[in-house]
Design a protein around this nucleic acid. Structure first.
Lengths: 138, 138
DNA sequence: TCCTACAATGGACACTGTCTAAGTCAAGCG
DNA sequence: CGCTTGACTTAGACAGTGTCCATTGTAGGA
């Protein structure tokens, strides 16, 4: 039922009830949850799971590249299980709603060598900001 | 001596020793300071300045559009006085060093209408990540 | 089944930022 | 030049997010 879970198991992850629950929460239809939101949902399935475990588990999934960390606002990090399809984010400046988007072009190619200052540039993160339809109405 | 200070005064800002010091710190050659770093440098010039005042003052300068908030890592926000020249940021994934960069192209144009989901998109923020020359050596 | 290394727990701690009530002061006005 | 007033500053408490650590538990191999 859980692709994420399968991938993690395939990497030799030691499987525990806690990790299973965190993976299930993330792989559900609720995208872009914060760590504490993940914890809240995990507690509903496994009441004794601790906050530290959720943080650790999320961190490990990020390290393994199965989950992406998103910091769209300056509050909590959010976790995006959609790690295997490159995408960027569109954020509502008022309500914080987040959508995955797929811009054309390759921003990496837009950074000339002269602007790289000797860095080995490996990644680029693009965040679009605007007002969502719901907030525009109100 | 301080362009930033002049611009703020021109907007009818009530001038106080605290605000002057914060503006001077920001407008110095130290770019991309965190709020607490600004506070530390401000204290050196005006020992009794409080943390709340630094936070307030930075927030007001952001609101006025004279300073930009940058969140390159998930730690503290950083403040960039280079608000009048559009630019993006290049960040070292290891040491956190930040450079201002000027990519070619216009990322806003790379987001097709079909990918905007009814949002009024007004801004885009691009963060390049990589390894800086110093960290590559070590 | 038993062992052992890895994982989970929970509570303290640190960092960043916000809020509030009270005191202070810049700047306009007489 | 001093008064008045409302904006500004202060100190410290508080809140949200995330990390650490010592202890306890357990998955999975021998």
């Amino acid at each position: 039922m859980s692709d994420l879970l399968e991938r993690l198991r395939g990497r030799g992850w030691r499987m525990t009830a806690q990790r299973r629950v965190v993976a299930e929460v993330l792989d559900g239809d609720h995208m872009h949850l914060t760590a504490d939101e993940v914890h809240a949902r995990a507690v509903a399935k496994l009441p004794e799971i601790s906050r530290a475990t959720v943080y650790n588990t999320l961190g490990e999934m990020v390290t393994l590249g199965e989950v992406i960390e998103v910091s769209t606002d300056r509050r909590a990090k959010r976790y995006d299980p959609n790690a295997h399809q490159p995408h960027q984010h569109l954020v509502c400046a008022l309500c914080g709603a987040i959508r995955d988007v797929h811009p054309t072009g390759n921003p990496l190619a837009d950074l000339p060598a002269a602007e790289r200052f000797g860095f080995t540039v490996s990644d680029v993160e693009v965040t679009y900001r605007g007002i969502c339809p719901d907030c525009a109405k109100a």
